[in-house]
Write a protein that binds this DNA or RNA. Structure first.
Length: 423
RNA sequence: GGUGAGGUGGGUGAGUGGCUUAAACCACCAGUUUGCUAAACUGACGAACGGGAAACUGUUCCGGGGGUUCGAAUCCCCCCCUCACCGCCA
C-alpha cells in the first residue's frame, strides 16, 4: 500500500510512475488527494471537539476535588452533549479513513522510473543472455518422459494420493531434488543469508502483511477449521518475521534465506503449458529476503539478481534475464527481474526466479520500520527473490543434460547427490 | 480437551477510577572519560495521526471489541492469544 504522506508530497512523480503500468495515474492520485483533504478536515473537527471534552472532564474533576460538587454537576450536561456529538463524528471519521484505505489498497506499487512502459510480456526487456542452447540429438525427450524413463518422478501416483500437480519424487529423483535444496541453502549461507525454517501455515495477518490478502485469496489453500493459510511462498512467513517491528539501523541489512514447500491453487490454469513440472500445486523453493535501508535497495536488487544468476551459472544453465515492463509486474513490486532457464526439449523459456524490490509497499503494511540516524522511525525497504524454485530447474537440468547414457548430474551437485548419473 | 494464571513502551515489569504527562530497571542513542574496547558518569529516549515555516501543539493508543462513568490501563461483558499443570500424543 502506498503511503498517504508520500502521495501528498510527491503527487506528480507518483502519478507518472503509476502510468508506467498503463493506468490512469493522474486521476487516481487526484482522487486520493481530494478524499484525503476532506478526511483531514473532518478529523480536525473531531479532535477539536475531543479536546474540548477533555478540558471539561478535568474541570469537573477539579471542582469535585475542591468541594464544588454542584458546579461540577452543572457541567455534566454539557459534557454529555459533547459526547453525543462525538459519537457520530467519530463514526464519520472512521468511515472516511476506511474508504481512503480501500482506495489505496486498489493502487499497485509505483514502478521505478527505469521500468519500461508496456502491457504484455512482449514488452519485457531482455537485459542479459547467458550461455548457449545445448545441442541435443533429435531423440531428446521432454522432462516428463525422462522422469518416466528413469522412474524418478511419478505424476500418476501423485494424482492417486492428492490430485494433479502433486508429483511423487522417487529414488534418484528425490535425492537429486534434495541435493539442489541443500546446494541452494549452502550457497545462500556463503553469501551472508541467515537460514530460517518458518512455519508453512500462516494466519490472515501475515497474508495481509505481504499482500497476498485480500487480492489473491483464491490462490492460497485455506484450512477453514483453524483459519490458516498454506504458504504460497516462503516470502510470506519470512518477510512477516519483521511485521510490527522497529529495527535498529545497525541491524540492517537483514538477509534471510529459507527453504519451504510452496502451495498454490493455480485455479483455472490447465493445459499443455502446465505439463510435467511446468506448473504445480506443491513445489519446493529456496527464497531469499532482504530488509534494507531505502537508499540502498536498488543496489541490493542488482546484488540479488547477480546472486541468483551465479546459481544458474554454477549449474551450467542457459538463461536470460528480463526486466519486467510496468504491465507485467506484480501488484506489489516497484522493479522486478525474472530469470528464465532454457528448456531444451520443450524449446521454451521457463521462469525459475523473480527478484523484486518492493520499496515501502510491503513494509508500510507490515509496519516494518527502523530508527534512522536522526532517531526517527522510517519504513525500511523489502526485497525478495527465488534462489531458486526447484521444479523448472529440475526440468531444465533433466532435459539439457540428457545423453543416450543417461542424465549427467552437474559437477557442483555431485558432492550433494553422491552420484554423477541418473540412468 | 480440562483447570488455573496472565496479556502494559524495543525488553523486564510497577501501576485497582482523576497529579499516569505510564514508575523503575535494562537495551538503544548522544556526550564526558579513554591508546582501542569495556566499565563508570551525564543527558536524551514510546508509537501513529493532525495543525504549524518553526519553536511548539492537539488527538488517539496499555491484546481486540462493546459497556458503566463527567472521567477507565484500572470496574463490567464478550472474543482472541500466551504461559503453567493435567489428559492425549510425534
Amino acid at each position: 500500500m502506498l503511503q498517504i504522506a508520500n502521495i501528498r508530497k510527491n503527487a506528480e512523480e507518483l502519478a507518472a510512475r503509476i502510468a508506467i503500468r498503463g493506468l490512469e495515474g493522474k486521476s487516481l492520485i487526484a482522487q486520493v488527494l481530494e478524499m484525503d483533504e476532506k478526511n483531514r478536515a473532518k478529523r480536525t473537527e473531531m479532535e477539536t471537539l475531543q479536546s474540548k471534552g477533555n478540558q471539561l472532564t478535568s474541570q469537573i474533576g477539579e471542582m469535585y476535588k475542591s468541594g464544588q460538587r454542584e458546579a461540577g454537576d452543572a457541567l455534566k450536561a454539557e459534557s454529555a452533549e459533547i459526547k453525543e456529538q462525538l459519537k457520530s463524528l467519530e463514526m464519520e471519521v472512521e468511515a472516511a479513513d476506511q474508504s481512503l484505505v480501500q482506495l489505496l489498497l486498489t493502487i499497485p506499487n509505483t514502478p521505478s522510473t527505469e521500468v519500461p512502459m508496456g502491457k504484455t510480456p512482449e514488452d519485457n526487456l531482455e537485459v542479459l543472455l547467458w550461455g548457449n542452447k545445448p545441442d541435443l540429438s533429435a531423440q531428446s525427450l521432454p522432462h516428463w518422459e525422462l522422469a518416466a524413463k528413469y522412474d524418478i518422478i511419478d505424476f500418476e501416483l501423485g494424482v492417486k494420493l492428492t490430485g494433479a500437480g502433486f508429483p511423487v519424487y522417487k529414488g534418484k529423483g528425490s535425492i537429486f531434488q534434495r541435493a539442489l535444496i541443500q546446494f541452494f541453502l549452502n550457497e545462500a549461507g556463503k553469501a551472508g543469508y541467515m537460514e530460517v525454517q518458518p512455519p508453512l501455515l500462516v494466519n490472515a495477518d501475515s497474508g495481509y502483511g505481504t499482500g497476498q490478502l485480500p487480492d489473491k485469496e483464491g490462490q492460497m489453500y485455506h484450512c477453514g477449521v483453524d483459519d490458516l493459510y498454506l504458504i504460497p511462498t516462503a516470502e510470506v512467513p519470512i518477510t512477516n518475521l519483521y511485521r510490527d517491528v522497529i529495527l535498529n539501523e545497525s541491524q540492517l541489512p537483514i538477509k534471510n534465506a529459507g527453504y519451504t514447500p510452496c502451495f498454490r491453487r493455480e485455479a483455472g490454469s490447465y493445459g499443455a503449458h502446465v505439463r510435467g513440472l511446468n506448473r504445480l500445486h506443491q513445489f519446493d523453493k529456496v527464497e531469499i529476503v532482504q530488509i534494507v535501508k531505502p537508499e540502498t535497495s536498488y543496489g541490493v536488487l542488482e546484488d540479488m539478481s547477480k546472486y541468483v544468476q551465479g546459481l544458474l551459472q554454477k549449474l551450467g544453465l542457459h538463461y536470460r534475464v528480463l526486466l519486467l515492463c510496468g504491465g507485467d509486474m506484480g501488484f506489489t513490486s516497484a522493479k522486478t527481474y525474472d530469470m528464465e532457464v532454457w528448456s531444451a526439449a520443450q524449446e521454451k523459456w521457463l521462469e525459475c526466479s523473480s527478484v523484486s524490490n518492493f520499496e515501502t509497499f510491503q513494509t508500510n503494511r507490515l509496519k516494518c520500520r527502523f530508527r534512522n540516524s536522526e532517531g526517527k522511525t522510517e519504513l525500511a525497504h523489502s526485497l525478495n527473490g527465488s534462489a531458486l524454485a526447484l521444479p523448472r530447474i529440475v526440468a531444465a537440468l533433466l532435459e539439457n543434460n540428457q545423453t543416450p547414457e543417461g542424465i549427467k548430474v552437474p559437477d557442483v551437485l555431485v558432492p550433494y547427490t553422491g552420484f554423477d548419473w541418473i540412468n
